[in-house]
């Protein structure tokens, strides 16, 4: 059973065992607008917790995506190269960005769960 956690910077990570899948939230894609380019990490890259992992570009601006947990990248969503707008269409599903083998799950304890994140976002408007 996977658990999903959220950062204040609007990334999500879904963790199942030591496998983590990372993307940006529906709120983030809504704020960014039409996404036109995604720079993916390289498979095999070792990411520090909180380190820069990817870049998502909308028509207007580039936004860096930070990995909520450290680990080694096992897979990237190559579909986003041709169809970056998948993040707009399905940010928490087909718009996932990369998967990592989580080396240390303890930073995840500090992240928000769904209810806490929803409350956090509600407070931003």
């Amino acid at each position: 059973m996977a658990t999903i956690k959220f950062t204040k910077e609007h990334e999500w990570i879904s963790v199942d065992g030591d496998q983590g899948t990372v993307g940006i939230t529906a709120y983030a894609q809504e704020q960014l607008g039409d996404i036109v380019f995604v720079e993916l990490p390289e498979v095999g890259a070792d990411l520090e917790p909180g380190g820069e992992a990817a870049v998502v570009e909308s028509v207007k601006a580039a936004s860096e995506i930070y990995t909520p947990a450290g680990g080694s990248v096992t897979e990237v969503n190559d579909d986003l190269t041709e169809e970056p707008a998948k993040i707009n269409a399905d940010a928490l599903g087909e718009g996932w960005i990369f998967r990592i083998k989580v080396s240390d799950a303890s930073p995840l304890d500090d992240l928000m769960d769904q209810a806490a994140y929803d409350e956090y976002v509600a407070g931003l408007d």
């Binding site: 204040k8 983030a28 704020q31 870049v55 601006a61 580039a62 936004s63 931003l124």
Partner: peptide
């Protein structure tokens, strides 16, 4: 323009 480590919503903030 790379967005600083702050947040995705830097412009707005």
């Amino acid at each position: 323009m790379p967005v600083a480590p702050a947040t995705l919503l830097e412009n707005r903030v």
